[in-house]
Computed example of a mutant assay.
Amino acid sequence: MEKRLTRTEMLFSLGFLFMLVFAVGAFFYGVKIGSDKTEAKFIAQTKHLSDSSSGPVSAYQQQDLVSFYHTVFLPYREFQTVWTQTIFKLSTGQLSDPASALKELSNLAKQKYDEAEHASTPSTSPLLEQAQLDFLKGLKMFKEAAQRGASSAKDMTSAELVTLIQKDAYFLEGVKQAMVGQRNYYYAMVKWSSSVNPDIPAQYESPSVLGIQQWNKLPLTVKNKLMADQLKSRMQLVPFYPQDLTARVDGFIVSGEAGKMKMKTIDAVVDLLISTEAVRSGDFSSSKQQLYAKELLPQLPFFFPEQE
């Protein structure tokens, strides 16, 4: 004979379920609030830069791209490098004190946030303004994710801790914001190249299916922006830059491998290269003279490392 729940037990069960749903909802709302607060703070601090009676005119100068690289993009990339190295060591059991390592990551995120926050970005370059905000929001989320991981470290194995961090809502939001920031930075480079060479489109959105023949006709800055789009859509932290992926795609096509495998779209080529971990940081530099000797690029250190 089945035992039926009493009215009190039923009310208790419903109350518990309500509290559980409320707690989960409150957590994700907290993530959004944290991100929105970062945005609101930044907008308030930079409002004076964009106030103008005539309104800002959009313009992308090479010196602005260079300044952004050193003051915003590089601090973020330095943090990302340490993050990926730490998570790798954690996943391979090389850290004797995971909690301390994650606390150091959280402190580093705060340090890099402070560096990038004080960078001056011109209001005439809205994509750079937005990219700065995106990277700040990303660093804020990574800081929170590292703190949360440190708090859980003592009760978990290294493998469990890595899984926890990679599924953490703050970490996922951090990746999203960082990839959006990267995409906006590379989009700003397209705007710059169009101002230098009118034959280069100032705006290019990839069609739903981008064929290899279409890809081959595109200028390098547009290709790099499309690869930043690809990385954004995959929501992955990778050690290479969008231009490294561009170079591997072009090298794969020029070598005839794409034709041998009967690939017709860029998506298919990118899927193969990323899934097989065939892209490395530095692939662009090693292929630049062969593939891009006559291509227009801003004078940024990751395009011209030989000048550093």
Rank of each mutant, 00 (worst) to 15 (best):
187 Y>Q: 14
208 S>P: 00
247 A>T: 00
278 A>C: 02
127 L>D: 08
103 K>F: 01
185 Y>V: 03
190 V>E: 10
223 K>R: 15
191 K>P: 02
222 V>E: 12
142 F>I: 07
121 T>P: 01
154 K>N: 11
133 L>Q: 13
305 P>D: 07
145 A>S: 11
28 F>L: 14
65 L>R: 03
139 L>M: 15
266 I>H: 00
203 Q>R: 13
66 V>E: 15
227 M>K: 09
246 T>Y: 00
304 F>K: 04
125 S>T: 14
165 I>V: 14
308 E>P: 01
65 L>H: 08
68 F>C: 09
112 K>R: 15
239 P>D: 06
103 K>A: 03
117 E>K: 04
186 Y>R: 11
240 F>S: 00
180 V>G: 01
114 D>Q: 05
113 Y>T: 08
304 F>C: 05
36 D>M: 08
79 F>T: 01
224 N>Q: 11
168 D>W: 05
174 G>R: 07
274 I>H: 04
270 V>F: 00
205 E>V: 10
300 L>W: 09
83 W>N: 06
287 S>W: 03
83 W>C: 05
131 A>C: 08
295 E>S: 15
290 Q>I: 05
197 N>S: 15
249 V>Q: 00
302 F>R: 06
220 L>V: 12
192 W>F: 11
257 E>S: 09
262 K>M: 04
210 L>R: 05
286 S>T: 09
62 Q>N: 12
188 A>H: 12
120 S>Y: 09
117 E>Q: 04
218 L>N: 09
106 S>P: 04
40 A>K: 12
224 N>F: 05
223 K>G: 08
194 S>Q: 15
178 A>I: 12
153 A>V: 02
257 E>V: 02
193 S>V: 09
237 L>H: 07
248 R>S: 15
84 T>C: 02
280 R>P: 01
42 F>G: 01
250 D>F: 02
283 D>T: 02
117 E>Y: 14
200 I>V: 14
127 L>H: 07
94 Q>A: 15
